[in-house]
Design a protein around this nucleic acid. Sequence first.
RNA 1: GGAGGCUUCGCCUAGUCUGGUCUAUGGCGCCGCACUGCUAAUGCGGUUUGGGGUUACCCCCCAUCCCGGGUUCAAAUCCCGGAGCCUCCGCCA
Length: 420
Amino acid sequence: MIELKTLREQPDAVRASQRLRGADETLVDALLSADERRRGAVSRADELRAEQKTFSKQVGRAAGEERAALLVKAKELAAEVKAAEAAQTEADAELLAAHKRVPNLVSDGVPPGGEDDYVVLEHVGTPREFDFPVRDHLDIGELLGGIDMERGAKVSGARFYFLTGIGAQLQLALLNMGMQQAIETGFTAMITPSLVRPEIMEGTGFLGAHAPEVYRLREDDQYLVGTSEVALAGYHSDEILDLQEGPRRYAGWSSCYRREAGSYGKDTRGIIRVHQFDKIEMFSYCRPEDADAEHQRLLGWEKEMLAKIEVPYRVIDTAAGDLGASAARKFDCEAWVPSQGAYRELTSTSNCTTFQARRLNVRYRDEQGKPRIAATLNGTLATTRWLVAIMENHQLADGSVRVPQALRPYLGGREVLEPR
RNA sequence: GGAGGCUUCGCCUAGUCUGGUCUAUGGCGCCGCACUGCUAAUGCGGUUUGGGGUUACCCCCCAUCCCGGGUUCAAAUCCCGGAGCCUCCGCCA
């Protein structure tokens, strides 16, 4: 949720942000008026309550006829308070509803427009020239005996898979390498719950536009996380953190579950787009004034990981319309996928400023000792999808795959993966 | 699945049976001041969080005793529902 103080003082800035996202500007005015109505209702209820309290105390002290007279008046007031409180409850609910509908303020410099209006910030590495017919990652994976889509479908349905043998080992190696880098950088390693309560899922902002993407367990009133970001954001909910020593950084290892609703026909082959995958996610809590710098650091650590797998990639600054509700800015790193002749997202780092933390009530104490809302950020260190880029970019004519240097220690020193 | 206990302003804790200066007690910690010719001891004062009013500051009001309802003029306290933690029984990876 955005800060209401900002909204009151600079409504035009919020409108401009909505425009940049291609979102509804009238939501801003709806929120403004809901805020005003609520404050009016709160004032009225507060005043009546104050009056009632003084009467109530007199009743306690009085006796006999005086008491009876006071009771009559007190009962009248009680009814008025009840009505005023009902009005306040309603105004509160309306404000919250309007508040939830407004996405985070877009940061300065974010390109306007939608999905295709990203700005490419840089290219790293050059796509390799192949002097043999390129195989896609599924062909390679099957040759190596590393991916079994057919049995994935048999057991669980479309967009499910088994990583088998060397495929499973390769993923473990990759994720371990990611976790190792995070630990060396000072992150706290975390293995997180996959099921979360509604208020946590709600707090991260995933139940807005992305709601259809999220698996929900109705029987138990819980949600399956689409990323460990959810659990890590909830980890410090309702807490006041000590950020004196700098940001709190966590690296979460989890399976991620996504319904992929509305993606029918897209990426149906292989493990590019699946319902379940594994991921190492970085998550930072920091002071709002440090958030931009922290965002750059997260991006830097993503690039460090990408360098280790030796694939060409580009960095994009996501356009406003393609940002999630919680994000003020987002950088994606997209790796070259030779079989598609295209760049595909491998990492994504978002600066959520205080938007998530406000709803989850994560705070820290400033120099004056006053509690303030913290900023949260997240970024990817490794996912199952990375196997696609690794296998395709490092494939050899016979279907073998050269193992990038940095990954070898995590695969018992193996330099090449060969077809079975 | 069943039974019981617990949850108070950073931590610990009194208060709940018997509703009303509870404007929530005390200790620890922390902050400030005083004193003492050295960071110790002692004394005094302060120390939940959120919202509203006013806004330079001060201040005032309301809410907040796990959460949500209810009873009542009045709820930390009584009633109902829920969550979390702990213990025991049953069952089972």
